[in-house]
Design a binder for these strands. Structure first.
Lengths: 140, 140
DNA sequence: TTAATTGCAAAGTTTTTGCTACATC
DNA sequence: GATGTAGCAAAAACTTTGCAATTAA
């Protein structure tokens, strides 16, 4: 469903603010916080309120344009919905975030489905651990 | 390292409040929020402040007695550090939490290790999705 | 004794809500 | 023109901090 169709069928409207929020999420390289989006948006349109950003992120999620995730802290993070599907590896030490191709997670997802009847949503799930760089090298 | 040793070497002390917070986490069946811990603690000792609970959770994590995780919302959740290792399946619809045996996740963990050099910490990772009960039954 | 810890109050951070005016369809 | 949306201000939800009094070691 196109954005136009989604707007029409949901009764939602496109506004300057909504467009700016959507563009900000689309242009973001990684997963961004509402605050980071607000900052980008305000660069072009300084009077836009944080509440407008939050309300638009919700609206855009309902429209299927963006997705939110919770990584390793209590802040909500957003990314575009049409990016390639991927899982998230979050390093507990440095906070760094790596994307993984779904194939690496697919067999696990199948197993959870078969054994637990659970449909895993890999795009929303963060796997916490320690990344290559932060791993302690065993002393020789 | 025993709790006694950890206390001694860190200069921390054991107090009635710290004991109650630790017991509350240990007795909790699942992963509990600070608010839930505070509620349990206040059942025995009504004047204990939320800040005391928060400070003790941090202290107990430094002591290696409890661990915090972020599941599918922005609330920090806590559990005992010495529970059997397990993964978490969190249902996006009902909020329910299911534990999975590590074996179901082990092959994924190996793959992440081999391909990304990432040591997944399955005990602290939440996999979000939709549980059996909440799955929409396809209409016939 | 001395330094960690408590309870209280206040403030910080992130997010939500109520309301009126305005913009979009 | 009807109603979804913006901006503002206030509040909610969760967590942290400063400080004087208390308590563990």
């Amino acid at each position: 469903m196109s954005l136009q169709d989604a707007l029409r069928s949901s009764g939602k409207r496109m506004t300057v603010q909504r467009r700016l929020v959507l563009d900000a999420v689309r242009q973001a390289r990684h997963h961004v916080t509402a605050e980071e989006i607000a900052k980008r948006v305000r660069a072009k349109h300084p009077q836009i309120d944080a509440s407008t950003v939050y309300r638009n992120l919700q609206a855009l999620e309902e429209l299927g344009e963006v997705i939110h995730t919770h990584l390793d802290d209590r802040i909500t993070r957003w990314h575009r919905a049409d990016s390639h599907p991927h899982g998230h590896l979050v390093c507990r030490v440095c906070g760094g975030e790596t994307e993984v191709r779904p194939i690496a997670l697919a067999s696990m997802a199948k197993r959870l489905h078969d054994e637990h009847g659970f449909d895993a949503d890999l795009a929303h799930s963060a796997i916490v651990g320690i990344c290559r760089q932060c791993r302690v090298v065993p002393s020789s």
